[in-house]
Design a binder for these strands. Sequence first.
DNA 1: TACGCTCTGTGATTTTTGTTACAGACACCC
DNA 2: GGGTGTCTGTAACAAAAATCACAGAGCGTA
Lengths: 222, 222
Amino acid sequence: MSYSAENDARLLERYPLLRELPATRFSELFANAGVMRLPMGTVIFDENQPCQGFPLLLAGSVRVIKSAPNGRELQLYRVGAGESCILTSSCLLGHSNYRARGVVEQDVEMVVLSPAAFRALMADSAPFRDFIFGLFAERLTDLMELVSAVAFQKLDQRLAALLVSRPNPLRTTHQALADELGSAREMVSRLLKGFAEQGWLRLGREQIEIIDPTALRRFSEL
Amino acid sequence: MSYSAENDARLLERYPLLRELPATRFSELFANAGVMRLPMGTVIFDENQPCQGFPLLLAGSVRVIKSAPNGRELQLYRVGAGESCILTSSCLLGHSNYRARGVVEQDVEMVVLSPAAFRALMADSAPFRDFIFGLFAERLTDLMELVSAVAFQKLDQRLAALLVSRPNPLRTTHQALADELGSAREMVSRLLKGFAEQGWLRLGREQIEIIDPTALRRFSEL
DNA sequence: TACGCTCTGTGATTTTTGTTACAGACACCC
DNA sequence: GGGTGTCTGTAACAAAAATCACAGAGCGTA
């Protein structure tokens, strides 16, 4: 299997909707679109930067964050393979610049569509449009929930919710959790200690093992 | 001028993009779409409610809010004439229910498009699609800024920003401002008193007169 | 004018969150 | 094994925001 054909296969696997395109159209769009690889920590885009193109993620994940002048940050959402950074569509369609930062969380492989190709697809592929709209809709509701959580929920509840929403032995640092919540590391440490004392989880270096997810979930929904 | 023709004229005035439609298509869509009038305070939609149709605002404004179980609320954004509640598009396109509440702020007149008509328009009118995408993009960035403000800015700065963003002698109650910020009335009263002592504004019953908008703006951007 | 209503002012107190400042624990590398 | 850097625990403190509890002001109206 040739290199390019392999890429095409992966692309179609991740983005089944692209099968709807006539073969000639497909190769026309992706003929010269190489796969881009970005290691963890790469800043894909940043605030007030114009938009270069539209990424289709084949593997990896990206954190989209807002960061405050004092160094604190807050995660707006996460983009995984098969999704696409809707913020980019927003830039491309709204003709504005980025208003957040995108950082590679797990090594990314992606194909980047030129703005022109993106617009063309939007114009004449109904499935692609639906896909983009669906993502938009999802992000919008996610963001509304996020605003609501930040405004009304206490940090302990938000932390509990975050913990149960992630893989179980969770390998991460307190600082990373704080950055996801938009808070400070000490707060997270304190709260985690509290949870541990309740017997809800066990703590280790860069490791959180949840023992009683039910209790945590109940607490988060209080 | 007949009643219906007058409505059509107003609709086209508010939504110039509809002029792009062939006349037959236009009348087909809006033939039986009467103008709906809703007085202040009406709850147009609410959380977990399915979506009835797509509104095109001719006049008035709608506050889209999240409300907490303890009675506090927070405004997500405002929808004015010529705009449209993007949340509704989100529902219609994402097939989900509303995740916020819409309340009429100033008496509303609107035309409601059926879900079917909305989908049809999306499918075959490029200008309409662009319009909707533009609104989506705008809301998305607005919401991101809101999250950022709620997470990182102090209440006094947010209040200052809110004040300068509104018509000058501002006629409203402290409670209404608190609801817009997602905070409590007492906080707003206290902070306003502080601003008044700085000589930045003058307070009256249901009235705030800004004297020094520059100082307020500078403070809000601190 | 007297009553009732909503709106505002304000102090006291509590809760929640953030900050500062270290000390110890652990992991990796030489 | 010792040094170095990151990660975690924790206490004391400061700041911001929320809550409670009223008093009084302004306004419409009976």
